[in-house]
Structure formats: structure tokens, C-alpha cells
Write a protein that binds this DNA or RNA. Structure first.
Lengths: 158, 158
DNA sequence: CTAATATCTTAAGTTAACTTTAGATCAAGC
DNA sequence: GCTTGATCTAAAGTTAACTTAAGATATTAG
């Protein structure tokens, strides 16, 4: 295998449009693989740029760094990810996107119904059956899962 | 108008499945209208239960409390929200849900393409053209908006 | 009326995800 | 070889969104 070109932290920062401190932070958190120069500076395989992009997109979707770390764990740390590696990650991620879309669509449908009739108090909010943000939230959200009935859309006059 | 039934903070907490401290926090943050008893205890119009439900759902969708406060500002503080009030909020919210869905669908399409061919380096990530999380994020996200090209899906072998 | 329970306020603590600061070392260009 | 810019580490600061703690008052049930 060809040795992968190595780049500096400043380069990664510039290429991804982020602060150097963020790249260092991600590296320290174990989200980005890196090696050190003799002097102690970090150097990254060029492919971390893709990793950073992925992290930013996933964050924007609402995933925590811990969850993202899970996604990224399917990528190899010691060699350049192959097409196959990324394809696997893509499929996993794709499934997550679809479930997010499904959850939002369901919420949308509920709200559409509510706009029309104003009394869907027994309609369950499917958004809360999602795994996504549940983990880190305590009993509150769990309970809500059982109880939310979109009553926020019901009005005074029954 | 009939006087709206007033409820205690503990009641709201129980009804929504949250801690009393959270309800107090929301009230202090101006997200929930309330009045005080002679003794100084908060009492809420029963309709705050709907507000709380709305807040939780919107938070789950990724909105900050500041943004949610904006959504809620269309509801009246001094009287029970009417069907009309909630319908307006619903419409606004509905539009937001649709834009989220559109963003995710776009991302999904990009990823589907990437899975297939592995070289969509010039495909823009539409997810970043969304207003949602942009505001609170600094220059990093803005820059990313212009530059992200889903290169995280490109593999070593061009 | 009194005990038990609920609330109140203020202040401090917590977690995630970062940034900033300070002082020191590396690396690159002339 | 030296100056300048890039990095390093460790520690502290920041913001959002809450919770916990402590001590004091309110409210309710009997």
C-alpha cells in the first residue's frame, strides 16, 4: 500500500473551515487518528478531512460526539479507509437519516391533522419513539414518550 | 371569558412528566406564563401543559430554547390560546418540519449517490443551507456551508 | 393548630462541546 | 543560526440547559 500523505493540524483546520482548537479537541477525543512527529506535533492522514466533514454533518443532524464516535468506529484507524469502509458507514448513516425523516413525517402528519380538527388529543407523537436523543435524556423524556398526545394543539373550546 | 383553571407547578411537572425544577426554569426563562398566589407560589393556566409539550417536541427537533421562545411568542400570555392561535403556531412549525425533511432528503440523495459511485466530491451538502443551527454557530459552520462537498465519502482510489 | 408536603429563592454544580490563555517548544525560511 | 509562525500542553473559561442544595415560607390534611 502506498503511504498516505500526512498533513498538519493547521491544514486540516483550514481545509474544513474550523479552528485549530477544534481539530485538536476531536483528536484528543479519539475522533481523529493521528501520529506525532519527532518533535511532538500531530500529523494526520489526509483522510481525516472526510472524517471531520462527516462529524460536522452528523452533529448538525443532532448526534452527539459520543454517537458519532460510534459511527466512525467502523472506519479503520491504521489505514486509509477504502471505498468499502465508507460504503458501510454510508449505509448505516443512510438508515439513520431515513428514520429521522420518518419521525418528522409522522409528526408532520399529526400536526396536519391537528390543524384540521383541533382535537387530536389521543394521537401519539411518534417522534418520541426514536432512539436518537433518548439515551442521554432521563426519565422525563421516557415518560413523555408514553404520554405526549399533542395536546399542545388542543384549544380551550373542546 | 371564563376564567381559566389555574394549576400548581407540581401538577404541571407531573402532567408533562418532568421535574419541578424544569418547569420553574422554563417559567423563569419566560417560556411559560404564570401568576403568583398571595403567598408567592406560582400558578399556571392549565394551557401551559400544551406549551411544555410543544417545547419538548421542538427541542427534540433540535431547536434551542431561544428559538422556541420565538415560536411561542405568537401565543398570548394573558389569555388562553384559541384554536386560531395554535393553528398559526402549527403552520409555522409545519413549515419548519418540512424544511428539515427536505434537508435530510437532500442529504440522503447525496449519500445514495455516493454509495453508488464513490466520487461525488463536488456535490454540495444542502443540509448546510438551512437556517436552523446556523445562527448560534460561528464562522466555522458558515464556511462549511460553502465548502462541504461530501468528500468524506470519497475513497483513496480516485 | 400542627405536622407533613409543596414551593420559594439564591447560588452553586453538571455535562457537552468547545475556545482561550499562558508559557514553552517546533519547524521553516532567510 | 535566528526569527517567525505553527503547535504543544494544561488549565481555566464559556454557553446552553438543567439539577442540586440549603434554608426559609406556603399550603394542605387531619
Amino acid at each position: 500500500m502506498k503511504p498516505e500523505p500526512l498533513v498538519s493540524i493547521g491544514y486540516v483546520a483550514k481545509r474544513t473551515g474550523n479552528a485549530v482548537s477544534l481539530i485538536r479537541y476531536y483528536a484528543n477525543e479519539g475522533l481523529l487518528p493521528s501520529v506525532r512527529t519527532e518533535g511532538g506535533n500531530r500529523v494526520f492522514p489526509r483522510s481525516v478531512i472526510r472524517r471531520v466533514s462527516f462529524i460536522l454533518i452528523a452533529q448538525n443532524m443532532g448526534y452527539t460526539l459520543a454517537q458519532i464516535k460510534g459511527f466512525l468506529s467502523s472506519l479503520p484507524d491504521n489505514r486509509t479507509p477504502t471505498q468499502q469502509d465508507w460504503t458501510e458507514l454510508s449505509r448505516t448513516f443512510h438508515a439513520h437519516i431515513e428514520s429521522k425523516i420518518a419521525a418528522l413525517s409522522s409528526l408532520k402528519t399529526s400536526i396536519e391533522g391537528c390543524i384540521g380538527c383541533g382535537c387530536l388529543s389521543l394521537e401519539r407523537c411518534k417522534l418520541y419513539n426514536r432512539d436518537d436523543k433518548m439515551a442521554k435524556q432521563g426519565a422525563g423524556a421516557q415518560l413523555l414518550d408514553e404520554n405526549v398526545q399533542l395536546h399542545f394543539l388542543r384549544t380551550t373550546k373542546k
